[in-house]
Design a protein around this nucleic acid. Structure first.
Lengths: 198, 198, 198, 198
DNA sequence: GTGTAATCGAGACGGTACGTCCAGTCTTACA
DNA sequence: TGTAAGACTGGACGTACCGTCTCGATTACAC
């Protein structure tokens, strides 16, 4: 039992309206034009309430994007019948996410927060990167077990390639077509060498 | 002949000291703590001189990193005998670059500038991404011609995977071992599928 | 009888500790640096308890200084044998009061409270200025009756001069010697004109 | 010669509009409700320009009231034919000043600034109190020389009484009639004792 | 005893102002 | 004209208080 602290309890409605306002302004103006004053004003909240619960803009943005606004659950490799199909599913879902301007803007904001703040980097790793790597790893293991995946494939480099491709695409900002996942998946699946190494 | 304009000519020494000061401060303090006043002070230069030649902080940082301070030339796929060796050379050079804290900091600054400024994004594309993609393309073509590379490999997805992996590694901030390039290259070369598709 | 209301009665100990804490902090930090949060903290009291009983900082300070902490009672013209001696007694007592740094600080706080708040001004008038003027008036009347004081002396200007001299001295902040009362009293008693007007 | 410093010189128009805005807002809202943000906004000036030249609100108010807005010059004892007439002139001028709500408000602001700030206290002393005491002293000396004033009258107590009476009247806030100066002057001139001490 | 009602300490709330910092522009004198 | 210096407007930052508002816990009196 959390042994109810004395004093007025934290307002859940304020917390929510702050996260919503942050998400809206992040989409409208981007990370660097985002102001805590604006967030507080739109959320109908005192500035101090922001600083009481979040140490920095980056931390607030990370919480906003990771916890409450974007839904990343689908972006996880599900243990499906085929490991390659699981990866393709994730690539398609990522493309669909990035194709929505709002979601892309939020993700870009998260990326900017992570690159300028240690705690945001930690949250990004904990709630996005690591689960994703875990999912990739499970998919690989099941694929290896079923004979679909080469036995000597390492998780780490594959994850770096996949997540990196997604982030690079996001950062480029240019829209990608439906064949984006195809191209990635083809390289990943078959490699580029003409003859398989013995 | 450039028809010498009237008035005092632009001071080359000021231009250089500005770029040097920008690079130093970028390494010391990171992109967001970098201020133009500090740059001007360290360069022994008036603030106006900055604004006369660069429209914004992001643009100055982009110029500094791309033109004058970091040497990116080795980070280009050279037309060597083997296309795969060329890619491995680039991967190793990238790892060596990121392993130097100063160079990594500069690159991170460039990345931050690009994500918040259109013109910096343009410079990054023009002077880094596009040449790199061009180099990869040339390497692939020569590899295809020599029978080393599968004939149906597309440049774009491969470039996204390679550059993405490099940027993701940079963003993670964790040091990578000498086997980083090995893992990447293995996946890229042979793919992950157990049996090559016919 | 006030027909005791239901509910928990007001805590006398809280009231006292608030007044004591206010006085201490007023002496230590001065009126403008005085904060209600600090008072509440030092008094071991909730902030609401302050606002329940006092409408404002100024009002609290006025009550603190006038009612409970400083003792102004001696600073009243006593009906002694000589009116001039009574005034001298008051002047000496005032000087002694102002010579104590704590008491001077409290009085300065009261003055600041009065100049920024209507109710504090009222309390100052009711509990300090008016009784003092009344005492001066009684002293004058008895002096006139005994032939000691000129019959046509008005109370009001004399009070303004005496209280004003005291407040001005307080505001100057410079310590005054034992002859301060002498100088004042000499002017007040004999005037400055060389020959008395007929 | 002050050896013109490099850089853009201080803007005289900003300085003036700041002082004017301060005076207006002081009259309209009083010292405690006066905000530096409001001053800057009304003066059409950046907040930093205030902080660049004045260390605090109190200092700005003191400068505003003493230097540029209220005219205190007439409130000085002029070396006239009669010392008593000079004092009466000053008393009347003071009454007239306090009778103007704007001027009274400014003076109250100055008083509040002085009571909460060391530097404002210094300015008040240097530019108001000391000149005034000097004027009173000169008047007394000339009166003594002409036989109008008793030879043993001290300047200090008289100045304390006069300035104190004025400040006390200001602080009381109640309007004073034309006979205010009469009452003060009568006490000051003839004293209150029935028979002059030998 | 058991309500009932006002108190208490605690502390979060919406706000306002603070004093600092920086961006980007401007105005000097000098080169 | 270019330059170093530095003042300018404007506005975000993070902090400090104000005065209000919940909480759970605590007293008293009335029943």
């Amino acid at each position: 039992m959390p042994a109810a602290r004395p004093g007025r309890p934290r307002s859940e409605s304020s917390r929510l309206s702050i996260l919503v306002a942050t998400g809206e302004l992040l989409v409208e103006q981007g990370y660097d034009r985002l102001t805590l004053v604006d967030i507080a004003a739109r959320a109908g909240v005192g500035k101090q309430t922001l600083y009481r619960w979040w140490p920095s803009k980056a931390s607030l943005v990370a919480d906003c994007v990771l916890e409450n606004v974007v839904r990343f659950e689908p972006v996880v490799v599900a243990p499906e019948s085929s490991a390659l199909a699981a990866i393709r599913t994730w690539l398609d879902a990522s493309r669909a996410l990035l194709a929505q301007p709002d979601q892309a803007a939020l993700f870009r904001g998260l990326s900017a927060a992570a690159s300028s703040d240690e705690s945001a980097r930690g949250k990004l790793a904990e709630r996005f990167t690591e689960p994703l790597i875990g999912g990739i790893d499970r998919a690989l293991q099941s694929g290896i077990a079923s004979g679909e995946i080469r036995v000597d494939v390492a998780t780490e480099p594959l994850a770096e390639l996949l997540i990196g491709a997604m982030m690079f695409t996001l950062m480029r900002g240019e829209p990608v077509g439906a064949d984006w996942a195809d191209g990635i998946l083809t390289v990943i699946t078959r490699g580029i060498a003409a003859a398989p190494a013995s």
